[in-house]
Structure formats: structure tokens, C-alpha cells
Simulated scan of single mutants.
Amino acid sequence: MQVFNLEEKNSILNKFIAEVRDVKMQSDKMRFRRNIERIGEILGYELSKTLIYKETSVISPLGVSKISLLDEELVICSILRAGLPLHNGLLNYFDNAENSFISAYRHHSSKTEFEIKVEYLASPSLEGKTLILADPMLATGLSFINVFNALKAMGTPKNIHLVSVIGSKQGIETLQKELPDHVKLWIATVDNDLDEHGYIVPGLGDAGDLCFGTKLQH
């Protein structure tokens, strides 16, 4: 798996990362969701530089212009529910993409032990298409792996891109071991540690709760 870590070069992305981490700003759910969306837009823009383009003629009022436009069938798949604002950011730029949604959540057998359960999938065929799989938090890597395996029933994509806001080094290492070499990960920032509950440190907390409110635990 190839990793593209955008924090390696300073950009306006730093502002949005700082704001989603800031506990004083997290109470503004609308701003939190919008910042995740903006991060998705930036990640999508960077990802777009690696896609396939075809030269096209565009007729203006004064003549004809040649320009290269995207020449791939894209499917954006977000992991519910936290992935929805990130999905929207990607869809703002890839507005002709098809859309897929899948659930993945932690089912705890104890305070520190859990398994990832996938219970819902709505997706078009992925056969021969470019899949963009979005989840804001890459902690242990198990959600991406379980979702990746669940999506195999929908066909074999031509290319696969993972998109995430914050990840842990441990989670990225797990994905590198478990996923094919041609998969690409686009991530805004990487933290060093996971706590005993499998959450990223310093991270930002529970992205789903911060976007949409707290939930009852299973």
C-alpha cells in the first residue's frame, strides 16, 4: 500500500486539522462537519492528480478550447456514520461519481476488546471502476480491512484509494500488511499512538459523535 501523508508539506489544511482537534471548537457541530468536508475536498484534489484524463474540446462563445478531463468511473464509498461529511467533501469535487454506503462499528466484548461488525451495504457494481473508500479515523485499521473484504462481493475495482483524516502509525502498518500493494492511502495527518481502548492519541475523539451527537452503545 502506498501512503500519501499531506501533513508532510505545510498548507491551509493545517488550519482545518487544528480546528477539528480543538476541544473548544468541537462543540460547534456544524463547523466540525464543515471542516471534515473541507479536508475531504483537499484530499480529493490531491488524489485527483493521479487519475486518468482524456483531452476534450470545449466550445466557448469565442472559440474551441482543448482541456483534459477526468476519464474514470468513480465510486465513493463512505463508512457510516462518521464518513458522511468526508464523503460530501469528496463528492463536491467528484460530482459525477457513483455512491456506496457501508456500516462498520465496534462491538465490544470488554472495555478494551472489540470486533468490527459490518451489517449494511448499498453499492453499485465496482467491477473495473475506481473505488474511493472514505473513513475519517484510521485507528487500528480493522474497519478499513473488514469493509474492503465486504466490498469484494460488489466486483473487482480497477484502482482503490483510501481517504482518511487522522490515522495512527499502528493502523497504517496493519493496512500495509493486509491490503494489496496497489492500494493508495490519502491521509491528512498521522499520530503516533493508540490508547488501551484502540483510540488515536492525541486524535480528536469520536468523529461520529462530534458530527452527529452521542449514540447508545451496543
Rank of each mutant, 00 (worst) to 15 (best):
L90I: 13
I132C: 04
E119K: 13
L204C: 04
I79K: 02
L84S: 00
L204M: 15
M154F: 04
G155H: 06
D181T: 15
E73W: 08
L121W: 03
E127H: 01
E115Q: 13
G128E: 10
E178M: 07
Y199D: 03
Q170F: 03
G171P: 04
E119D: 15
I67D: 00
H108T: 10
E55W: 05
G44Y: 08
D191P: 08
C211K: 05
V118E: 13
E178G: 00
F148C: 08
I42T: 12
P157E: 10
S78H: 11
N14P: 00
T156C: 05
D191K: 08
N159C: 02
N35F: 01
S57E: 15
S78E: 01
I102C: 02
T174V: 11
L90E: 05
S68R: 14
I172E: 11
T214Q: 10
T189I: 07
F32H: 07
S125R: 03
Y199K: 12
S27Q: 10
S48F: 10
V20A: 06
M1N: 12
Y120L: 05
E37G: 06
L131E: 08
D95V: 00
D195Y: 00
S125I: 11
H87P: 00
R81C: 06
L216A: 15
T56W: 03
F16L: 12
L6H: 06
G208F: 08
Q217L: 04
D193H: 14
E72I: 11
G63M: 05
V163D: 08
E7T: 10
S109R: 03
L74D: 12
L185V: 13
K152R: 02
I79F: 07
L162T: 07
A122L: 03
L74M: 12
E115T: 14
V118I: 12
F148G: 02
R31E: 04
S65A: 14
L216W: 02
E178N: 11
M137Y: 11
T189P: 00
S57M: 02
L62D: 13
T156V: 11
Y53G: 07
E37Q: 11
L62S: 12
I17Q: 04
K184V: 05
D22P: 03
I12H: 09
G63I: 14
L70N: 00
W186D: 14
D206M: 02
T140N: 12
T56A: 04
V58D: 08
L138A: 07
A207D: 11
I145N: 11
E119N: 13
M25Q: 15
D71G: 00
A153G: 01
